[in-house]
Design a protein around this nucleic acid. Structure first.
Lengths: 394, 394
DNA sequence: GAATCACTTCAAAGCGCTTTGGATAGCGGA
DNA sequence: TCCGCTATCCAAAGCGCTTTGAAGTGATTC
């Protein structure tokens, strides 16, 4: 009995030792600790392989007395399966609660059924693009009708390229949507090089190689909007823009300048602001411009969010928006900040970012389905909607 | 020559026929069309198997004259590899631009290195949760430090349970975050049943089984806020709440009621509103309440977004916020709608949703790493910040 | 009556990794 | 000299699917 007891203890001791090594092996880069595979090889702990009771294709086909081939085909709707058999398989799958393992599926098929979105966010501003949530909602809707889903990666600005590499090259996604392109965005050349379908939401003016994109005509939109203000008699129009390293912001600035020029007006840098598109940006900029010697009678701004800040600043100054000062903004139709229910609050250049998300997703799906590489571009026009925030110059 | 030519044509004809069948076979559920596997078997088209030139582990190890085992271990930092060998492998990997295929990796390891987020969105309101983008940004940050990423699925309300099944049971994700729980949310029992780690952002009061969650003490938050208004002398306080089938909204209502009760005030249903948390909701509700016989002197609301609507309504009525009417809101610290830069615009109960996202992600990571199922809960308190939107009753 | 064909089904070979269970060589101590 | 030990490395067996190439029925055709 003493012997037996000892042996039990010994085995127990071993087991613990092995377990430690097993764990050790799992924690990578631990070469300082002593570790021996000679010992390790005896370790049987933690091998989660082939758990019985787990319902997989093999198990299911065994219970059905059919081959994996037939079961797989039956479930995937291939024609070469007897309808009676298909029914039997479907019922068994239901009964045993069988779900194919997507990881195995994607490995076998070579498609990951997933689209990558890489969300850049600047550590300083801690801000996600305003339109991001609605864009995602639109895109996601399309993906799900195609059986796809989204893989999101949130990365700091500086890590972004390596994140693309990580997501793309390893076959984790079948396609990529590029958000918020800068004027000369390195990501485009990078992705083109990786040879994976991708589509840019927006454009990168300085990139010359061909790539797929979907954009709103930002230049024309803001040109039209500014023109509208000019038509109302405004001659001093402030611009409260997004960050102008972003392509869309630069283009909006171009549109603004172009409208001024057509009207024979000189641009005045002192009433043009550019920055992170949040509410305080609109507020602060407006305060500054109002405090200037010759304050603007109208404002053009990049989004409904800074427009809210403009409104706040105006009200603080006792100015009534639409009567004393006019405001025109770009309206992406952000779902929780709709521009009024019936009459628009803000006169705006309108284009739904949710629709853009949908369209981008569709275009990318087409690219992925296409047998040969496909480059498609699409340019939308924003629509001018007249709201209560503009009026003839006082 | 005639023969040869014919045979070429024949083969060509076959090839085209086969190609059609290959495509046919890929389009599933096409049993109406004639299709024969006897013919199909001759088809060699579209088998993208083992493309030469593709750099995978096998290819890399061949070029290095090493086994796949050794190369894999070298790259993954296991101790049992000679440092010289490891260096050689690393250099070759770099040279040949080798990236392990994540699909194969996840199949082999059994972990998908991905967290699922299922975004419910109601077809009617076409709205995504306001706090969603910031929550995701916070969570994503944590995931990426752990080598994880997010899999997002956007689903209509009615499809949600099946989406969970799709995402979870097939092993596509290692864990799930549940957003916007309702009071008696069926998803919780469902996920518990699927036996996959999950964490609820918020709680479901009516669910009795144990589950992991992270929440802000919404009841106490709004109780404190309402109390503050009461202390300022307000006796008629309107509530503009979110949809009360949502747990958080119900709890906020509870807090509001509880504060009134402590002050010996009866609740008045006519000055309580509940709805989708967008700007027009705040605006419309305020207009209605202001039009009533005995309008409130103060408002409590669920988010900074309806608070903006309240402000707009007040200003339209020529009422100054903070002087004529007080407004207190819940502030999630949405990145593009910060509550002022220095002095807060709105007096608010504050709690960062980005931090919540971070914390939820951390807690879920812990659950996933844990050897045995782990249930953890965490309750945060929101902080009262005094801004310019409140003042003593006039 | 043999050849042909459509219809079903199957065994086995992938997909590209990780992990297991050795094997081998070199080295110091008994 | 032999043994035990460590440091390296490897072949092969998974992971759970899909797809290939074949085979076994009957029915039909010539």
């Amino acid at each position: 009995m003493t012997y037996a007891d000892n042996s039990v203890n010994l085995r127990l001791g071993f087991a613990i030792g092995f377990k430690a090594i097993g764990i050790l092996r799992r924690f990578k880069r631990v070469s300082t600790l002593t570790y021996s595979p000679t010992v390790h090889r005896l370790c049987r702990i933690n091998c989660a392989q082939r758990q019985s009771g787990v319902m997989n294709l093999r198990e299911l086909s065994k219970r059905l007395n059919l081959s994996q081939t037939t079961v797989s085909r039956a479930l995937n709707g291939y024609p070469e399966v007897n309808e009676a058999t298909r029914k039997r398989v479907a019922e068994a799958a239901q009964l045993y609660n069988y779900r194919p393992n997507v990881r195995a599926q994607t490995l076998a098929t070579g498609r990951s059924m997933s689209i990558g979105h890489i969300i850049p966010f600047s550590k300083q501003s801690e801000m996600v693009n305003i339109v991001f949530a609605d864009f995602i909602a639109g895109a996601g809707e399309v993906y799900s009708t195609h059986g796809y889903n989204m893989t999101l990666t949130v990365v700091r600005d500086e890590d972004e390229l390596s994140a693309y590499r990580g997501v793309a090259e390893k076959g984790a996604v079948d396609g990529i949507i590029v958000h918020s392109p800068a004027r000369n965005d390195p990501r485009i050349a990078f992705l083109a090089d990786l040879d994976i379908p991708f589509l840019v939401h927006g454009r990168a003016s300085e990139v010359t190689l061909p790539y797929s994109w979907m954009d709103v005509n930002n230049t024309r939109a803001i040109e039209t909007g500014t023109q509208y203000l000019l038509d109302l008699g405004h001659r001093r129009i402030g611009l409260i823009n997004g960050q102008e390293r972003m392509d869309f912001a630069q283009r909006r600035r171009d549109g603004y300048l172009s409208a001024l020029q057509s009207a024979g007006l000189a641009a005045d840098e002192t009433i043009m602001r550019s920055g992170e598109m949040n509410e305080p940006h609109g507020y602060q900029s407006t305060l500054e411009l109002l405090a200037s010697a010759d304050p603007p009678t109208a404002f053009v701004t990049s989004s409904i969010v800074p427009a809210l800040g403009i409104r706040r600043a105006l009200e603080e100054h006792g100015l009534k928006m639409g009567r004393d000062v006019s405001v025109l903004c770009y309206d992406d139709e952000i779902s929780y900040l709709p521009n009024g229910t019936e009459t628009p609050i803000f006169t705006a250049m309108r284009s739904s970012v949710r629709d853009a998300g949908r369209r981008c997703a569709e275009m990318l799906m087409e690219q992925i389905m296409a047998p040969t590489p496909l480059i498609k571009t699409e340019l939308w026009d924003a629509e001018l909607v007249i709201g209560m925030s503009t009026g003839p110059v006082g």
